[in-house]
Simulated scan of single mutants.
Amino acid sequence: MTTDTSSAAPCACGNHAGQRAIDIHAHFYPKEYLDAVAAHGEAAGAHFVDLKGTQALKVGPLFTGPIADRFIDLDMRLEDMQQSGVSSQLLSLTQPMVYWADERLADHLSAVFNDALAAAHQKAPEQLFGFATLPMQFPDRAIAEAKRVAQIPGIKGVYLGTAINDTNLSDRSFWPVYAVLEELGLPIFLHPLKVVGMTDRLSEYFLANILGNPFDTAIAAAHLIFSGVLDAFPKLQIALPHGGGALPFLLGRISHGWSVRPECVHLETDPRAYASRFYYDTITHDEKALAYLIEQVGVDRVLLGSDYCFDMGLEQPRKAVETLDVLNDAEKSQILGLNAKELLKM
């Protein structure tokens, strides 16, 4: 049953108060997943840490916490959605994901999380949907889980790291997974996990997130372009977080490198042309940056995102779109929800 949030004060959402807002970037730590990590993860290096009464999770260099109740409790989430004017969320797991686990545990944790997505959708079928987690370090297992979740109501795509442990997404071992995802019509939403530089030059001042996340997204996108993944799977849809990270602002440099460097001549098409193959969320923290992103890739490639409920996210994600003067009302409606509705077949 959907939680009654009628007592919550609605968001002041301007001229688009009636527009369905679909947030594609919202994180979820179901209790079932956390319990499974606690029960089976210790031997694989997963450790829970107490942060003044709230748990955090550490796996190698990845540290996630505090994992506040709002990440777990769906009733609290639905209330927050009411407050922010978000109609629907696409729930996704984030670090440490399941890539640190052995084959059996990774497969188990993926299934536990994905089944929790199904339960969340059953609880609020018009509001909560999910991006499934796959044990990508074991491609055969990932393929089997992708085929399973494609039959589960409410699952609208899959969530992958910008790298799988230390392996780039261009690696040929992942191509059979991409083939299946393309065939199943399951879009991919990427998110940084173990980012470049996080254990050395970006280890201070939260720079692994502030700088490392957008850099790692650009690295992943470049690998997908130059490796031929996007050419080999022309119907595969991929969304990039945090406004595409550094990618939109480096398109000119990437294009120039392609035109002069022998390492890049194998690509027949200017890599700038591939920018519109990706989708991008709205989390740029700067209206000029968001306007530039839209100018570079087109309004039809941009989707609403919040990064719920991390402090690096947006508490009022609609505001970034509704206050952007370069957009007309129809374009704002596209970004708020119509683009996601079309992409995810909602």
Results as ranks from 00 to 15, higher is better:
Val158Tyr: 03
Phe129Cys: 06
Ala146Glu: 08
Asp200Cys: 01
Asn213Tyr: 15
Met136Tyr: 02
Ala132Ile: 06
Pro125Val: 11
Phe131Gly: 01
Ile219Glu: 04
Ala220Met: 11
Gly161Lys: 00
Gly161Cys: 14
Gln137Arg: 14
Phe131Cys: 08
Phe131Ile: 06
Leu202Gly: 01
Thr167Leu: 14
Asn168Met: 10
Ile155Phe: 07
Gln137Asp: 11
Gly130Trp: 12
Gln127Asp: 02
Ile143Met: 12
His191Lys: 05
Phe215Met: 14
Thr217Gly: 08
Val196Thr: 13
Ile143Val: 15
Tyr159Ser: 14
Phe131Pro: 05
Met136Thr: 14
Pro125Tyr: 08
Lys147Glu: 15
Thr162Trp: 11
Gly197Phe: 08
Arg148Glu: 03
Pro187Lys: 12
Thr217Cys: 12
Ala124Asp: 12
Ala119Tyr: 00
Leu211Ile: 15
Glu126Tyr: 01
Val196His: 10
Asn168Tyr: 13
Leu186Lys: 02
Pro187Met: 13
Lys123Ser: 08
Val149Tyr: 07
Ile219Trp: 03
Phe129Asn: 03
Phe189Asn: 06
His121Trp: 14
Val158Trp: 02
Thr199Glu: 15
Leu128Asn: 01
Leu190Trp: 09
Val180Trp: 00
Ala118His: 09
Ala144Arg: 10
Val158Thr: 04
Ala144Gln: 13
Leu186Asn: 04
Gln151Pro: 00
Gln122Thr: 14
Trp175Tyr: 08
Gly157Gln: 08
Ala221Arg: 05
Val158Gln: 03
Ala150Thr: 01
Ala120Ser: 12
Thr167Trp: 08
Asp216Pro: 04
Asn213Leu: 07
Ala222Phe: 01
Lys156Arg: 15
Tyr159Gly: 05
Phe129Asp: 04
Thr162Asp: 12
Glu204Thr: 10
Thr133Lys: 01
Phe206Pro: 00
Glu182Ile: 04
Leu184Phe: 05
Leu202Met: 09
Arg141Val: 02
Glu182Leu: 07
Ala179Glu: 15
Glu183Gly: 00
Pro153Met: 11
Asn168Lys: 06
Ala118Phe: 03
Thr167Ala: 10
Ile219His: 02
Leu184Pro: 04
Glu145Ala: 03
Ala218Cys: 15
Thr162Gly: 07
Ala118Val: 12
Pro135Trp: 07
Asp166Lys: 12
Leu207His: 11
Ser173Trp: 00
Arg141Ile: 01
Thr162Gln: 11
Leu207Met: 14
Gly161Ile: 01
Phe129Lys: 10
Leu181Gln: 06
Leu134Tyr: 05
Val158Lys: 01
Pro192Glu: 10
Gly212Ala: 09
His121Ser: 12
Leu160Cys: 13
His191Phe: 08
Gly212Asn: 07
Ala144Gly: 00
Arg148Ser: 05
Leu211Arg: 01
Leu202Arg: 05
Ala132Gly: 13
Ala218Pro: 03
Met198Ser: 10
Leu128His: 01
Phe206Val: 13
Asp140Arg: 11
Leu207Glu: 12
Arg201Asn: 08
Ala146Ile: 10
Pro125Cys: 12
Asp166Tyr: 07
Leu128Phe: 05
Ile152Asn: 00
Phe189Glu: 04
Lys194Gln: 11
Val196Gly: 02
Ser173Leu: 09
Ala144Pro: 00
Leu207Gly: 03
Phe174Asn: 09
Leu160Thr: 02
Ser203Thr: 10
Gly154Gln: 11
Leu169Met: 11
Asn213Cys: 09
Ser170Gly: 14
Arg141Ala: 15
Gln151Glu: 15
Ala150Gln: 05
Ile155Glu: 10
Phe129Gln: 02
Ser173Met: 15
Ser203Tyr: 04
